[in-house]
């Protein structure tokens, strides 16, 4: 249970971070750090839908020294919002600020992002040895849910701090407007899904509850048909009575007996009392207020 709980905690935290982009050799168009230099940089991306604090994590380019450069814990800016990215400059001096790593990037090396425990590698990114100047290596989402990010072979135009891939990608609604301008596809799919969901519900309840209940009721009703001593059903008894009456009784007798048989057969009369007792309050002498009045002295 503890293991599961720990896994859960990790899942909501730094394990959702990836190294999404890196630029090793900046050119004259690259972004400048706070000191006016065009340094190499790495970009971290939070692929979760919750905020992640990466303070206390480590960056390194040396597998044997995972604690090479620590990201300060006490800076509020280390909280990274959902689907947001942050750029850390690899200036070689981690003391320059929160977003500076204590090593420089070189083509052919691999960068590691290490958890705040100091030994769990969260993610890594290898920089190709022949990465051209001014180009970056990026990871792109391979799935619709944007959870599986894979590094791309071809060098990319740097996009520090921005979502990698197509910056002008259409929103779902825009994509729908293009692919289904009149709405028929969405309508057909949606109606089918609504019907399917409710039809499955109907089928399950019909199969497991409604049908068995009705069959049981039918069987019970069949078993409950009262039999006379000779095994003759009530219906036949009623028919026999009717025939006998037909020969000797009057119209009023027919009506009275038919009503009695009808009530009996339809379970409208019964010998079992409902079990309710109504207590009607009746006036007692104790409640008579006039008894409590005192006569005034004359």
């Amino acid at each position: 249970m503890l293991l599961v709980a720990m896994m859960g905690l990790r899942a909501q935290n730094v394990s959702d971070l990836i190294i999404s982009e890196a630029l090793a050799v900046p050119d004259s168009t690259g972004i400048m750090d706070d000191y006016g230099r065009r340094s190499a940089w790495v970009e971290l991306f939070n692929k979760s839908t919750g905020t992640v604090n990466f303070g206390g994590c480590f960056l390194t380019d040396d597998r044997t020294n995972l604690k090479k450069s620590i990201i300060p814990k006490s800076d509020l800016r280390t909280k990274l919002g959902p689907r947001q990215s942050v750029v850390l400059f690899c200036s070689g001096n981690g003391q320059e600020g929160t977003f500076y790593a204590g090593f420089t990037l070189e083509p052919g090396k691999t960068i590691y992002l290490v958890s705040n425990d100091g030994h769990s590698i969260i993610d890594s990114l290898s920089i190709p040895a022949r990465l051209p100047e001014g180009k970056s290596v990026v990871k792109l989402a391979m799935d619709l849910r944007q959870q599986d990010f894979q590094p791309q072979d071809s060098p990319a135009i740097p996009s520090p701090g921005m979502l990698n891939g197509d910056q002008n990608a259409a929103t779902k609604a825009q994509a729908m407007a293009e692919s289904d301008p009149h709405g028929w596809t969405l309508t057909l799919v949606s109606v089918s899904v609504v019907f399917s969901a409710l039809a499955i519900l109907w089928f399950l309840f019909w199969l497991f509850f409604d049908r068995p209940a009705k069959q049981a009721a039918k069987a019970k009703a069949k078993a409950a048909v009262p039999k006379t001593a000779t095994g003759t059903p009530d219906g036949e008894v009623a028919a026999a009575i009717a025939m006998a009456l037909d020969m000797e009784a009057s119209g009023d007798d027919y009506a009275a007996i038919a009503m009695a048989v009808h009530l009996y057969m339809n379970d409208a009369i019964h010998d079992v009392e409902p079990g309710f007792i109504t207590i009607r309050s009746t006036g007692a002498a104790w409640e008579n207020k006039s008894r409590f009045f005192r006569k005034l002295p004359r």
Partner: peptide, 13 residues
């Protein structure tokens, strides 16, 4: 609804 599951489909329609 449970006693007459077929009526569920009207809700879908």
């Amino acid at each position: 609804l449970i006693s007459q599951p077929r009526l569920i489909l009207i809700g879908a329609a």
